[in-house]
């Protein structure tokens, strides 16, 4: 493998990691703050992708896409608020199985609704950032580089929100002891709603950003959920840094694993072997904290 090819496959791995991180960031945030495994996360991501595509195709790929992205984040945030109020408030503190079933039921309802509203056809939208960069005889899509940048911005933004704002302080306090936080006058119920709205908005942001790079259909919710959970488990559910590292590991394993003949047949299996190994050695994930 030449240095140029090494760079090519490394950037491919980064693109893959960025895609997975963008999807998983909200999942991880919600689990970290609310201790809820949100099976409807992929569904919210899917709604955002559809909203973005529809608006972008109506208004044109440039302005239409960015407008669509904003609308998608707003719509999914609102949907997140509704889900939190109607479903999650009834399952906080219950065993994870009940939460899983509750959010899974929501995902089924959304999947059915999306099929009714948007139909079965694949939808596509032209990239708002066309063009490519040539380095060392190989081409790199500008939009993939944008996705990498977007993933970094999201990671830094979520980290800053958690560790540099009052909201973040309250979220971390709620994770440690919600009753004590409540006693200090913070409305924990509203705080939970806010966190879920942000998590849903992140899922929406992910769906909107990913939309120009793939076919949007009513099955993209499940396409991504398995790998998103894998990186969350590897990195540690609830840890944004962990999700970033997990996405990087998975992205690189897939990128290099598929192009090396000896590892190709096992490339995807490696992801789950790593996940299993992490679960055995460090069940809370590389950067996760044990549940109190």
């Amino acid at each position: 493998m030449t240095p140029g090819q090494l760079l090519l496959f490394a950037v491919g791995g980064l693109s893959n990691a960025a895609y997975l991180f963008i999807v998983a960031a909200g999942l991880s945030l919600v689990f970290g703050a609310l201790r809820v495994i949100n099976m409807a996360h992929g569904s919210i991501y899917m709604i955002a992708a559809f909203v973005t595509v529809v608006i972008a195709n109506q208004l044109g790929a440039g302005l239409g896409f960015w407008g669509g992205l904003l609308v998608a984040v707003a719509v999914t945030g609102a949907i997140g608020g509704i889900i939190e109020v109607l479903v999650l408030r009834r399952v906080y503190g219950r065993e994870h199985l009940v939460q899983l079933l509750g959010t899974y039921a929501v995902s089924l309802v959304i999947a059915g609704g999306v099929r009714i509203v948007f139909g079965a056809n694949y939808r596509t939208v032209v990239s708002p950032i066309p063009g490519h960069i040539d380095v060392g005889g190989y081409s790199y899509a500008s939009y993939s580089l944008f996705m990498i940048a977007a993933a970094i911005v999201i990671a830094v933004g979520v980290w800053a929100m958690l560790y540099r704002t009052n909201l973040g302080r309250n979220i971390r306090a709620a994770v440690a002891d919600p009753d004590l936080l409540n006693a200090t006058g913070v409305d924990v119920t509203r705080l939970y709603t806010t966190v879920f709205v942000i998590g849903a908005g992140l899922a929406g942001l992910g769906g909107a950003i990913v939309a120009p790079s793939q076919a949007i259909s009513s099955s993209i919710d499940t396409d991504v959920l398995v790998l998103a959970f894998a990186i969350s488990v590897i990195g540690g559910l609830g840890s944004i840094v962990g999700s970033g590292i997990g996405a990087l590991i998975v992205g690189m394993v897939i990128s290099f694993g598929l192009v090396i003949p000896a590892t190709n047949p096992y490339a995807l299996a490696f992801v789950f072997i790593i996940m299993t190994a992490v679960l055995i050695v460090r069940p809370r994930g590389l950067f996760g904290r044990p549940e109190s």
């Binding site: 491919g12 791995g13 893959n16 190989y138 694993g257 995807l268």
Partner: peptide, 13 residues
Amino acid sequence: NPRWDSTINAIQA
């Protein structure tokens, strides 16, 4: 996986 970076890059290589 919906991302095809590996295959596209392998073709370029």
